[in-house]
C-alpha cells in the first residue's frame, strides 16, 4: 500500500473581505498521508476545518501555503485538474443539491458523460454503480420521491460510476435520519471492502468513526489525534478536553477503569463493551 494523498504543511485562509476573522487560518499546518485502500474518518467540530480540508483533496480549494498531492500530482497544477477529480470523487452534505438530472440513472451517468466515455460503457458503469449502492431498482425514479438516504446513495453512485480510486464524503449523513445514516455507511463500507476504494469520511458522529481503519481528529485547523479507532478513543480525557464526544460504551469502560477495575483499555462497540463488563461482573462474583 503506497501513499495516495499527501498533505504537506497545509495552511489555508478564506479569501473573504467581509469576514471579520480574516486573519485566522482555517487550516493551520496540516500534515497527513492517506494510504491507498484505507478507510479514514476525519472528525471534529463544525468550524474545525474538516470540511475545508476535504475540499482540498480534489482541488476545489487550493492551499494558501503548503501542498496537497494526489498520486504525485500537485493539486495546484491546473493540467492535472481533471485527472485529480476523476480519481477523487467528492460527495457533499445535502443530497438534494448535488443531483443534477430528473431521473436517477441519468444523474448517475452525468459524471461519465462529462468524461466523454462511450455510451455503451456508461450504461454498464451506471448499472454497476447503482447495484453497488443497492439503488438499481430505483433507476427510473425521480430523485424527488426518494428518501434522504436513498438520494445520498444515488449521489455516491454518480461518483462510483466515474471509477475513482477514492471517495471523499463531506458529512454525508448529517442531514439524514438514523436509518438513512445506516444505509449510507454500509454502502460506503461495502465499496471499501469489496472494491478497495479508498474512503475518507468527514463526520461528527463517533459511531461512524469507530468503523474506520483510522481516525484523524481535527480541531482549530490542526490534527491533534491520529491513529486506529482504539488508539484514538482510548484518549477519553484528551477528547473531552476538546469537547468531543466519545462513544457511550467507551466512556463507561473508561469510567470503570478509573475506579481501578481490570478492563480492556478501549472498547468500541456495544458488543465489546458488554463482553468486557460481563467478564468483570462474572469475575467478581
Amino acid at each position: 500500500m503506497g501513499s495516495f494523498i499527501e498533505v504537506k504543511d497545509l495552511y489555508f485562509k478564506y479569501d473573504d473581505p467581509e469576514d471579520e476573522n480574516k486573519n485566522e487560518f482555517a487550516l493551520n499546518g496540516i500534515n497527513l498521508t492517506i494510504e491507498k485502500g484505507s478507510f479514514v474518518a476525519v472528525v471534529g467540530h463544525n468550524g474545525s476545518g474538516k470540511s475545508t480540508l476535504a475540499k482540498h483533496f480534489n482541488s476545489l480549494y487550493l492551499p494558501t501555503s503548503g501542498d496537497v498531492s494526489v498520486n504525485g500530482m500537485n493539486t495546484k497544477d491546473d493540467s492535472h485538474l481533471f485527472d485529480i477529480r476523476r480519481s477523487i470523487g467528492l460527495v457533499l452534505q445535502n443530497p438534494d443539491n448535488q443531483i443534477v438530472a430528473g431521473i436517477v440513472e441519468d444523474d448517475v451517468a452525468f459524471g461519465c458523460e462529462n468524461l466523454g466515455i462511450p455510451p455503451k460503457e456508461i450504461r454498464k458503469r451506471v448499472d454497476d454503480a447503482l447495484k453497488a449502492v443497492d439503488m438499481y431498482e430505483y433507476r427510473l425514479h425521480s430523485p424527488d420521491k426518494l428518501s434522504g438516504g436513498q438520494k445520498q446513495r444515488v449521489a455516491i453512485a454518480g461518483i462510483i460510476a466515474m471509477e475513482p480510486e477514492c471517495i471523499v464524503l463531506d458529512e454525508p449523513t448529517a442531514m439524514l435520519d438514523p436509518q438513512g445514516r445506516d444505509e449510507v455507511i454500509s454502502a460506503v463500507m461495502k465499496l471499501n471492502r469489496e472494491r478497495g476504494i479508498t474512503v475518507i469520511i468527514i463526520t461528527h458522529y463517533m459511531e461512524e468513526a469507530v468503523l474506520a481503519d483510522r481516525v484523524v481528529v481535527i480541531d482549530k485547523g490542526r490534527v491533534f489525534l491520529d491513529g486506529t479507532p482504539k488508539e484514538v478513543f482510548s484518549q477519553v480525557e484528551m477528547l473531552k478536553q476538546h469537547r468531543l464526544d466519545v462513544p457511550q460504551g467507551t466512556e463507561l469502560v473508561y469510567k470503570l477503569r478509573g475506579c481501578g477495575f481490570e478492563l480492556p483499555k478501549c472498547v468500541l462497540d456495544e458488543n465489546e463493551c458488554a463482553d468486557a463488563i460481563e467478564k468483570l461482573l462474572k469475575g467478581v462474583s
Partner: peptide
C-alpha cells in the same frame, strides 16, 4: 452547492 457538485463530477 450544485455548481460545486458539478465541478466535482468534471463538468
Amino acid at each position: 452547492d450544485l455548481a460545486m457538485a458539478m465541478e466535482c463530477r468534471c463538468y
